[in-house]
Design a protein around this nucleic acid. Structure first.
Length: 575
RNA sequence: CGGGGCGUGGCUCAGCCUGGUAGAGCACCUGGUUCGGGACCAGGGGGUCGGAGGUUCAAAUCCUCUCGCCCCGACCA
């Protein structure tokens, strides 16, 4: 490609509406422009990168036995009503209505569509397992789109679905997908970790997220040397048994106006960890009392899993008063009325004297003990891990880091196949429910993640595997005839050899060309100028290291080719 | 949806408080000089100041409404 003919609008200054480096650089390097909040146009340069990531994903999916297909973006509401997600998916779902007033959704994910397809065509265990995927635009009406393409309302995603006779068959495919995903991100030149995660609105049981490590990441990751790694929504931690305390009589204490953990603990002069925080939630129509230590945060994702409801909501002050008899801020599990399901966090300990709300205005209770005052009927892991917590496996203090979620794989089980009656006949002729897995990769987000990880103060530093071009040829001064001749012939020679090359044939000053080259971030730059030509050489510059090698003009094409091929081999599929 | 901020040539911004000629830098066009890390000189084109209503002799500036965008908290690839 000749830069003089390219639609590649680069910017000297950071766009005013971008925060993240990747967002700024995508706009500045001419990859991306915004059309509306969370809605972007991907320009030619950005599209080249996107297609490379797509192609890597495609190759690894195919290698793992996946078959690519194309599901519709527009789907009738009935399909989503069948699984209950028309209601449960909530406001994220883009809804549409046609001229006949029929409801539709713009697909945020495609479990319904694929399950519909499969139930109509899979009859026998002989047809299983089956692994289908697509790479397609997805729509999610994000509460707050931000960070450019990182959290957009319209974005590119690879979504894959696998179908199985049983859990064992699913487990095998799940492992294959896990390996395939690792291969994809490795080939994109990314550093990543695989973490245990929450399944969110998709549902299902076992699942893992692929996190690209980056300071700017939105997700918190807990990890330890033994290999345990989990997202903050799902991270477990070892509960340290506290020394038993002497029993003391349950005591009422006036705590006028003290509602929050902080207020109560400073008023009573006790540590926050000594309090029990009692929160009333509604999972659909059913109220639940969740109790965690005062120095820990309740983890809504964990609660959602325990309750089997995608989005439990906090009760209002009125509802709390009605259910507990006390106002907001004075709720506790002691003497709570029958029928209000109470779940205690696992880190609430036996043989300790706790402070809880008294379910009455301005009243707290001291020396509350499990077993004696509170029946620990239901126990669950409800609280969020925090800095300093110990690994549930090895007991070491966990490390806290940040990551960008680029991939997520789930063992779905029969959640959708059951709701949609996708069944097969086994060898004995019994009708059985198909077992499913689902696997996603954020394509556009992966592009941003690469930049997030591979950039410097001058711009992007692409790995060869996803770089928009392999080589950037820069004739320093196009009005110098020999410079132009050498550049043109190198350009032609490299193109012919199948190397993707960008030629800066613009009549610009060298400084501007170099700045643009660094910004765009093509991994290899060939500088051709009078200075070098005097000695019969051109310069090869490595974008990442800045290292410059002087190469005789005659060897330039061969050397470039050698380097490109070598680099690509390093990031190629490993069989 | 709650809280905060911003909308002025293509981009980054000043002007607004204290009403009176719409500005700068970059980008763009023409000519010239230049040419190894975002050149210089001269000339030029381009803006209903987000939109609507109001106050006023007069509104980018003050008031009301509205739309859009960004940031902080509840979602996820």
């Amino acid at each position: 490609m000749r830069l003089s003919r390219a639609f590649l609008p680069t910017l000297k200054e950071d766009p005013a509406d971008a925060e993240l480096v990747s967002h700024k650089l995508m706009v500045r390097s001419g990859m991306l422009r915004k059309l509306a909040a969370g809605v972007y146009t991907i320009l030619p340069l950005g599209w080249r990168v996107t297609r490379k990531v797509e192609q890597i994903v495609r190759e690894e999916m195919d290698r793992a036995g996946g078959q690519e297909l194309r599901l519709p973006i527009l789907m009738p509401a009935e399909l989503w009503q069948e699984t209950g997600r028309w209601e449960k998916y909530g406001k994220e779902l883009f809804r549409e209505r046609d001229r006949h007033d029929r409801d539709y959704v713009l697909g945020p994910t495609h479990e319904e569509a694929i399950t519909d397809l499969v139930r109509n065509h899979i009859r026998s265990y002989r047809d299983l397992p089956l692994n289908l995927y697509q790479i397609q635009t997805k729509f999610r009406d994000e509460i707050r789109p931000r960070f450019g393409v990182m959290r957009a309302r319209e974005f590119l995603m690879k979504d894959g679905y696998s179908f199985h006779t049983d859990e064992a068959q699913l487990a095998a495919s799940y492992e294959e997908m896990r390996d395939a995903y690792a291969a994809v991100f490795r080939r994109c030149g990314l550093e990543f970790v695989i973490v245990e995660a929450d399944s969110g609105a998709i549902g299902g049981d076992v699942n893992h997220e692929f996190m690209v490590t980056a300071e700017s990441g939105e997700s918190l990751i807990f990890s330890s040397a033994c290999g345990y790694a989990a997202s903050s929504e799902s991270a477990k931690f070892r509960v340290e048994p506290a020394p038993p305390e002497k029993e003391a009589p349950l005591t009422k204490r006036e705590t006028p106006g003290r509602k929050t953990v902080e207020e109560v603990s400073s008023f009573l002069g006790v540590e926050p960890g000594r309090l029990l925080k009692s929160l009333v939630f509604f999972a659909g129509p059913d109220p639940v009392l969740a109790v965690v230590p005062g120095d820990r945060e309740l983890n809504e994702a964990k609660l959602a899993r325990v309750l089997g409801h995608p989005a439990p909501r906090l009760a209002t002050a009125e509802e709390i008063e009605k259910l507990t008899g006390g106002p907001l801020g004075f709720t506790g599990p002691v003497g709570i009325r029958d029928g209000l399901r109470t779940i205690l966090d696992v880190s609430v300990q036996e043989n300790r004297n706790y402070v809880t709300g008294g379910n009455a205005p301005d009243l707290h209770l001291l020396n509350v003990r499990l077993g004696r005052d509170v029946e620990a009927r239901e126990r669950a892991d409800l609280s969020t891990a925090r800095e300093g917590d110990r690994c549930p496996r090895c007991g070491d203090v966990m490390r806290l880091s940040r990551g960008i979620e680029v991939g997520h794989i789930f063992k779905l089980g029969t959640k959708y196949s059951e709701a949609m009656r996708a069944t097969y006949l086994d060898a004995e002729g019994n009708e059985r429910i198909i077992v499913m897995g689902t696997y996603g990769i954020g394509i556009t987000r992966t592009v941003a993640a690469v930049i997030e990880q591979l950039h410097d103060e001058n711009g992007i530093a692409w790995p060869f595997s996803v770089a928009p071009y392999h080589v950037h040829v820069v004739p320093v001064n196009v009005s110098h005839p020999e410079t132009r001749e050498v550049a043109e012939s190198l350009y032609a020679g490299l193109e012919k050899a199948g190397i993707e090359v960008l030629l800066d044939d613009r009549d610009e000053r060298p400084g501007a060309k170099f700045k643009d080259a660094d910004l765009i971030g093509v991994p290899l730059r060939v500088t051709i100028g009078e200075r070098g030509l005097k000695d019969g050489v051109v310069e090869l510059r490595d974008r990442k290291t800045g290292q410059v090698d002087r190469i005789p003009v005659g060897n330039a094409a061969g050397e470039v080719r050698k380097r490109v091929e070598e680099a690509l081999r390093k990031l190629s599929p490993s069989d």
